[in-house]
Computed example of a mutant assay.
Amino acid sequence: MTSTSTPPGLARFNALQEQAAFTALHEACASTAWASRLLAARPYATPEDLYAASDAATADLTTEDLEEAMAGHPPIGRPKPGDPTSAREQRGMAGAPEDLEAQMLELNLAYQERFGHVFLICATGRTGEQMRDAVKERIGNSPEQEREIVRTELGKINRIRLARLVEED
């Protein structure tokens, strides 16, 4: 049976005051341009409409907008203290052996030196080893290739965070 009513979490998001909605979006993605674009398209009839708007906004981010978005993400293996979102997303590194933690620290620093920003990957559901292997593989990319991979990974992260925002009761 298909429901035509807006899911409660999405209805609550649609009803938020503009500043509260912007804050919620900005917590999902640190790009002001992305959050502003999603805010301007409210109300959303379905979560899928919101996700499609997010995908379109992510695709249109400038290099500067991407840099702003990436600045909101802590390095893999070092979630922001007191931030349950980054801790949950980086669960694959929780309790990792010391040698894996040391490898990730070294790889994160090498990646950041090469590209000028944090290594961004949709860490949800990935093991520490998978994330280590991904940074090893991606560090050889050109800056242009890496920017597009980052854009794709950011889009995945944004969808997961938006789903949590509008599907929670």
Rank of each mutant, 00 (worst) to 15 (best):
M104P: 02
C122P: 02
E89K: 03
E98A: 15
M93N: 02
P97H: 07
F119P: 02
R132H: 04
P84I: 15
M93D: 04
P97G: 07
Q103G: 03
G95H: 00
M93E: 05
E89G: 05
T85H: 00
Q90L: 07
H117F: 10
R114L: 12
E106A: 15
D99N: 14
P81D: 09
L107V: 08
P97R: 12
G128Y: 01
S86L: 02
Q103I: 12
D99T: 15
D83F: 09
G128I: 03
G95E: 01
Q130D: 13
G82S: 07
A94R: 00
E113L: 11
T124W: 00
G125W: 07
H117D: 06
N108S: 15
R132L: 14
P84Q: 14
T85F: 00
L120F: 10
D133C: 08
L120R: 04
I121N: 01
A87V: 14
M131K: 01
A94P: 01
Q112C: 09
E129T: 14
E129G: 06
L109M: 10
M131A: 05
A123C: 08
R126T: 05
T85G: 00
R88C: 00
K80G: 00
A123D: 04
E106L: 13
G128Q: 05
V118K: 01
E98Q: 13
A110D: 10
A87S: 13
D99E: 15
E129N: 07
H117I: 07
G82Q: 06
E89P: 03
G125N: 08
E89F: 01
L120M: 08
Q112P: 01
Q112E: 15
Q130V: 09
G92Y: 04
A87N: 08
I121V: 15
H117T: 11
A102G: 10
L120I: 10
R88S: 09
P81V: 11
F119V: 01
L107N: 03
A96L: 02
E113F: 09
Q103K: 07
R91E: 12
E113P: 01
A96F: 04
L105A: 12
A87Y: 02
R126D: 03
R132A: 14
P97I: 11
I121C: 06
V118C: 09
A102F: 09
P97V: 10
G128C: 03
M104Y: 05
A96G: 09
G92W: 02
L107K: 06
G116P: 03
C122D: 11
M104A: 14
D133T: 13
T85V: 12
R91S: 08
M104K: 05
L100Q: 10
Q90W: 10
R132T: 06
R126L: 11
G82H: 09
R114T: 15
T127I: 07
